[in-house]
Design a binder for these strands. Structure first.
Lengths: 233, 233
DNA sequence: GTCAACGGGATTGTCGACAAAATTGGGAAC
DNA sequence: GTTCCCAATTTTGTCGACAATCCCGTTGAC
């Protein structure tokens, strides 16, 4: 056993059976995806030492990553008791999605339409990236491309705080969304909705855009509420 | 020198000229107030060792407090460069207040009216606490009581995420609000508005409530925008 | 049989010390 | 006089080790 990874600077290969070194951001992304894709279940405990061993990192690094995951509200930390994957009750899911709908439709109303022609190509490129990931059946890439696409859209609403808040709430909803991300059919539906959003942005049909934003994440909410009656308390 | 404070457990007195020990949450509150009341200016740098010496804490504890202040968005941390009190450009102030207005008026619309008679006494008590602090001219107590009052009101909107988001944005706006908190006249104006809000909640006059929520923080925005033209970039 | 006190082991939290990075000030070259 | 570069200093970041806390199974009393 030698030199475990430091924070962000990836060092050379070490050894040890189960210690493939990784950078802090890579570990963060991996854990994020473990949660989003349901490999880590709500309420499941994360043990610092285990995570450190898995990624060949020090416990200190893992600890910092945990505080970041906590900031993202993907996990919850209880003093002296450790970190748990966050779980939402059906009532909370309902409230979270109500708020998201309110904010995203409001943001859609604020975007100047039609979008300037300079703004369209980047959005188009992101949509293509998403579509390609769907075609390849690469759920991880779909997940990342989806985030990037939505961020880019709401960046045009003219209010950085609104855009940030939307993104944060989207992050919190990731725990809920994993059911959606798994099925090829729903990924394709999302892809088609993205294309329709782009059309609406291009043509300046605001009502269509607003309706699309509202409809976009409904399936995820319903899937979660249908699947997890056990989370009622 | 001896035993500097650990995290939350306050230990006995140590010694050293400038090292009065304090708990982590006390240090956090003190720094928060330093920022809110303008004793620390936007862009001003916070040096870990200095803060540690001032409060008789270890640098480790200060470091954790900084990450908490960063989470509250009161400071900004740049890797290997340290922590700065956050500064907002006039455009950002405008956007922040726009969003707060949108969320707070929406929350006001969601509160079931008139409020149940069981819910009123706690709100009344908080309002009294605020009024007492204003009468005593204790800006620190006014600040805390104001936060508690608003949190208690928006807790009734039926959406924990909306309430949380409102509170977080309020926290971010604290850096901006300090001008308001200093003048006795504006504290008294706030106190009267709180009383009016309570009346509206009691009587179920929703339009009045919504208007009050919207009007409540306008002066702070305007004060900031008037006073800090230098923050234009 | 139930319950409370008590340890042993597992896990998280904190410390002092060291390493890495950035800033500053001074001097050499032009 | 100005610019560039380097070294010394300041400041932040990370490590290994230790301490505190919690969990859980065991024991013993009633």
């Amino acid at each position: 056993m030698a030199a475990p990874v430091r924070a962000e600077t990836s060092t050379a290969e070490t050894s040890a059976a189960e210690a493939p070194p990784a950078t802090a951001s890579a570990i963060l992304a991996a854990l994020e995806e473990d949660i989003v894709f349901g490999r880590l279940h709500p309420r499941e405990r994360l043990i610092e030492e285990e995570v450190a061993a898995r990624f060949g990192a020090t416990r200190h690094a893992v600890r910092q990553i945990f505080t970041e995951l906590e900031r993202m509200r993907l996990i919850e930390r209880i003093p002296h008791r450790g970190a748990l994957v966050k779980a939402y009750s059906p009532a909370e899911v309902q409230q979270l999605y109500d708020l998201r709908e309110m904010l995203e439709t409001q943001a859609a109303r604020l975007i100047p339409l039609p979008l300037s022609s300079a703004a369209l190509p980047p959005l188009h490129a992101l949509q293509q990236r998403h579509a390609a990931a769907v075609a390849a059946g690469d759920a991880r890439a779909v997940f990342r491309a989806d985030l990037a696409f939505h961020r880019a859209i709401y960046a045009h609403c003219g209010n950085v705080f609104l855009a940030e808040t939307i993104e944060e709430l989207g992050q919190r909803a990731q725990v809920i969304r994993y059911a959606t991300l798994r099925s090829q059919a729903s990924m394709e539906r999302a892809r088609d909705q993205h294309a329709a959003m782009l059309d609406a942005l291009r043509q300046g049909t605001r009502d269509v855009l607003v309706a699309l934003c509202a409809a976009h994440f409904r399936p995820a909410r319903e899937a979660y509420l249908g699947q997890h009656p056990d989370l009622l308390r």
